[in-house]
Design a protein around this nucleic acid. Structure first.
Lengths: 343, 343
DNA sequence: TTGTAAGCGTTATCAA
DNA sequence: TTGATAACGCTTACAA
């Protein structure tokens, strides 16, 4: 069933069918009506390949997800919630969201290249940016509308958004400092993921502002997994001069840390203060309750949708764009895991 | 940069370029070499829309994910691991995996229809099947190669796979019975998701085989969320004649249940035996450790890949297919949460 | 208001 | 072994 079949059935030219279906002017109300009915009756729907080829646009927005090399980093519903917000904006513009999952054995850069060169999407959102991320330079060069979810080291102009790691670091350090902690450990990512650096440096700065110098022995780099958190716990417990508090860059780490502490009968809050990062459904159920941060992922998804649309429409109209950057603030949620240090 | 550009650059016809790129016979080794070099040099890659249109195939396999209406039931890591196994099989066949995320506000049936009618994929995997799932009948009717991940009530032949809910139920009940439990509660899904029914009925049968009749007051239907599990805990604690054990259809429930019990100082295993379901990274960190089940999701993903390929190739060759069905066995992992009942 | 036909970038058929 | 050319299904400029 293609456009010719419908045309034949109605004794109308294919041009008219197309115009009717695309809400183009110059079709009588009656003809349009007939077309719509026939389309419904014969369950016809324009072939996307034909349409894309002719239009020079696929009507799809890609979202590239990379499985963390450490396996299962970001908690459960993190991306799903973002997709929800993103999806509803795109749907309103008649665009489809397709998620490109980059296999663990695939090179992210090659994957992006394939998507772009084949013209599979009209716009792309990339996540899990690295400090040095060739995907960004590549996408700029190829002039594909894209948004980086996560900062990177590149200087070149592009639209990006990220979580407020500096704000989280500052609030975390501030709270711990006010509680009386002076020996504070920082747990961050073991690999090149950009946010690991950003978080660490922000903590260092926040500490420095309070006259505390962050020494190398208090920086813990671990894979962002429960296993990494477990290992972190072991390393903390083994220290002669154990810190009284630890701030973590991500909550999967926190889960493992809780576990390790529990095995050693060390109680979060009482024996070691802990501040987690993004609120995740799992962490909600930790006991003692975790001091962590909350943000609206659905809203973030909506932002991505709105801005990718801006980029696409600007390009279509040949307009020059002003690239947006947005840092998402996170609200601290006090829990029992941050207490004054034991004396 | 399209195929004509390359042809012009090399002073060769576009037909030859195409043949060289698609490993067709009848291209001299030397010409092929020249083409491959030029393609690399000019970063040319065939336009997917043109290719799809001509070939009548898009080279994409879709995986449709529906966010649970209850929000966040099956975790991201669950699907991610499956994607990994699936992806690597598809890549070996030169196919791409694209994930179609069905927004929470979208109708899954309409979403499938759109994907199919537009010819966006050569094959589709649907998950979160309902007991009555119109998507299945629709896909059969449309003759699109597809696999249902999850059983449904339909009688019509199609390829599907599912977890061994019966096996899990039987092993759970068997263990609890042997430990001495006689009053056993079953926690299942509150909505129409097919596996909720399958699990419940399997538990009922396993109990009946041991002379225990599952009464309605011991069946708990909850949304598959931590909140649902928390609520379940409250309902269990409120019973006059509290069951000594509970078996749960999914571990997100278990997390909430642990939390509720902890709030009431009721210790899993000692005061109430608990058997969870699929091993999930979060549940690994529950204390006391949870008795649960383990399966290889990557392997399951590989199975999906292999069988969608079979379906596609059979269709291409015009062969009739024998639809495969596979039930994935799960291994029980004893934990501290299943103990003899307190006396 | 409608029909005709060109062309989007490929692959495949048929001749050379 | 290669080149010319006809599709694939659609949108759109132009003609009627």
């Amino acid at each position: 069933m293609d456009i010719h079949d419908i045309a034949r059935r109605l004794n109308i030219s294919i041009g008219t069918i197309s115009r009717a279906l695309n809400d183009r002017a110059g079709v009588s109300a009656e003809t349009r009506q007939r077309v719509l009915e026939a389309v419904k009756r014969y369950e016809y729907s324009p072939n996307q390949s034909g349409r894309s080829l002719r239009r020079g646009a696929t009507g799809m927005i890609g979202f590239m997800v990379i499985p963390n090399r450490d396996r299962t980093a970001k908690g459960e519903s993190f991306f799903m919630t973002i997709f929800d917000g993103l999806q509803s904006v795109l749907a309103a513009h008649g665009l489809d969201l397709v998620i490109h999952y980059c296999g663990a054995d695939q090179d992210p850069q090659a994957h992006v290249q394939r998507i772009v060169e084949r013209r599979m999407v009209d716009g792309l959102i990339i996540s899990q940016t690295n400090r040095s991320d060739p995907r960004i330079d590549y996408l700029i060069q190829k002039k594909l509308p894209f948004i980086a979810f996560g900062r990177s080291g590149t200087r070149r102009a592009h639209t990006w958004t990220d979580l407020d790691f500096e704000g989280v670091a500052e609030q975390s350090i501030d709270l711990l400092y006010r509680l009386g902690h002076r020996r504070i450990a920082i747990a961050t990512a073991a690999n090149d993921l950009n946010f690991g650096y950003v978080y660490l440096e922000a903590c260092r700065a926040s500490l420095a502002r309070r006259g505390i110098m962050l020494t190398e022995d208090l920086i813990f780099r671990e894979p962002l997994t429960e296993a990494g958190g477990y290992s972190l716990g072991g390393r903390l417990l083994a220290l002669r001069d154990r810190p009284t508090a630890v701030a973590l860059v991500q909550n999967t780490l926190t889960l493992g840390l809780y576990h390790r502490l529990s095995d050693a009968s060390v109680v979060p809050g009482r024996d070691l203060s802990i501040i987690g990062f993004d609120q995740s459904p799992n962490a909600d159920f930790l006991r003692p309750s975790l001091t962590q941060f909350r943000l609206s992922l659905a809203e973030l998804g909506g932002w991505l949708g709105g801005h990718i649309m801006t980029l696409i429409e600007a390009r279509r109209a040949g307009r020059v764009i002003r690239h947006a950057h947005k840092i998402w603030p996170l609200q601290i949620e006090p829990g029992e895991s941050a207490q004054p240090p034991a004396r």
